[in-house]
Every structure is written in C-alpha cells, then in structure tokens.
C-alpha cells in the first residue's frame, strides 16, 4: 500500500477535539487531547480511549480452532472467553469464531493474516472494528446508563467476555486488570463508531471525565 493513509472509523468524531495525531499500523490516530496531567485525571475518574488502530485477525468455522492451534496459538477453552497468547489477546466469540488483537510492537496478527486464507471449514473474517478502552472510578456508573445487563459482576469474571448491546449497538465487552486498575475493552462495528464514541463521551463528560489519547495507555511513536 503506497501512501495509503487509513482512517479510524471514529476519526470524524474526534477532529473537533483537535488531538495531537500519530500513526499506528498505517492509521492516523489521536495520541493526545490535552496535557498529560489532565489526561491522567480523566483516566482516574472516567475516560474513553480509541484503540481502533490496533492490529487484528479473525477467523471462524468448524476448523478454525485447529487451524490456529496448528500455528501454535493457544486458545481459550470455553465459549465466550478470552486469554493471552504471549501478548496477543485471543477472544473466543461463541464457540467457533476467534478474534485476535495485538498490542503495538507485536506482529502476530499481521503474520497470521499473511499466512492463512479461507479454506476447508475455515473462513478468514475481515473486520472493521471501532474499539475503545473505558476506565476510571466511575466506570460502573457509565455502564449503568448504557447497558441493561450487569457488567460489574460475575458476568465478566474469570476471563469471560460478553456479546451484548450498549446504547443500542451490538458490542463485544470484557474486563481486564492492568496495573491494579479495572479496564473495560469494547469492540463494535466501525460504522457505529462515531455514534458510540459521541454517546459515551457525552455521558463521560457529564460525570466529570474526559477522553484520553492513545499515549495514555500505550507508548507509541
């Protein structure tokens, strides 16, 4: 791809916030919206961060699990759960669909997408995710306003993930502990990205939080 600048599906919603831009995986992303101490306060209180730019690979079908295992990828054993293979996040959606996501600096997904094609019982799934990190002490209050099921309790414990609806949009959610802080990860179809970002950010601002750029959670270029 020569000179191709990819867009986060959420970019349109962020331009008015005038972020400092960076590039990850060929995609223009918002690195920072405000001074680091402002962003740190947001992260502690309640924040949303657009991580759509991370590299992903997805595959489904009766032979999907075996195909990944043959490539040496360790998979979560039960349906609707997640695990880590090295640093790659491996999600089992239902029982025979997998979504993998690399943090920056890891090339596992890129490698898999180059090596694997759709074939017998295996279907490589192209994706256009809008993906967010949500965190902060008021996270449960935010979720209470946008989700009808109880995401604070056992539903997402023990490495479980859920496919549910947030603010009327189908999403995948899971919780992670990072440095003692509880984070929520969220993926939705990119065409809903702007709507979901704006809807969540409105509530976040009302509750006294704000957005943070990619730099808050990752050390990028």
């Amino acid at each position: 791809m020569q000179n191709v600048v990819l867009q986060s599906s959420v970019a349109f919603a962020q331009t008015s916030l005038k972020p400092e831009l960076g590039f990850i995986n060929g995609m223009a992303i918002a690195n920072r919206y405000a001074d680091p101490d402002v962003e740190s306060r947001h992260a502690a209180k309640l924040t949303i961060c657009d991580v759509s730019c991370l590299s992903r690979f997805a595959i489904k079908g009766p032979a999907a699990a075996d195909t990944l295992k043959a490539k040496g990828v360790e998979l979560p054993a039960s349906a609707n759960s997640w695990s880590r293979h090295d640093e790659t996040l491996v999600m089992r959606l239902g029982s025979s669909e997998f979504l993998l996501e690399d943090p920056i600096g890891v090339q596992q997904c890129k490698g898999l997408s180059e090596q694997l094609q759709s074939g017998d019982g295996v279907h490589v799934v192209l994706r256009n995710d809008a993906s967010f990190i949500l965190s902060g002490e008021l996270l449960d209050e935010l979720l209470a306003q946008v989700c009808a099921i109880d995401l604070s309790g056992p539903m997402l414990a023990d490495n479980r993930l859920a496919m549910t609806s947030i603010a009327g949009v189908s999403v995948i959610v899971l919780r992670q502990e990072v440095a003692g802080q509880s984070l929520m990860r969220l993926w939705c179809d990119g065409t809903f990205g702007v709507y979901l970002w704006e809807t969540l950010l409105d509530i976040i601002k009302e509750l006294g939080g704000g957005p943070v750029g990619f730099n808050q959670f990752f050390n990028s270029n």
């Binding site: 029982s95 009808a148 099921i149 549910t164 609806s165």
Partner: peptide, 17 residues
C-alpha cells in the same frame, strides 16, 4: 421487560433478541 436465555450467551433482556 422479559428475560430470555440464549443457549450460548446466557440470560439477557428481550431487547437483545
């Protein structure tokens, strides 16, 4: 609102169905 149990995803409000 009614709750319904999806065999794969568990108990959810009927608005998800």
């Amino acid at each position: 609102m009614k709750l319904l149990q999806c065999p794969v995803n568990g108990i959810r409000p009927v608005s998800e169905f």
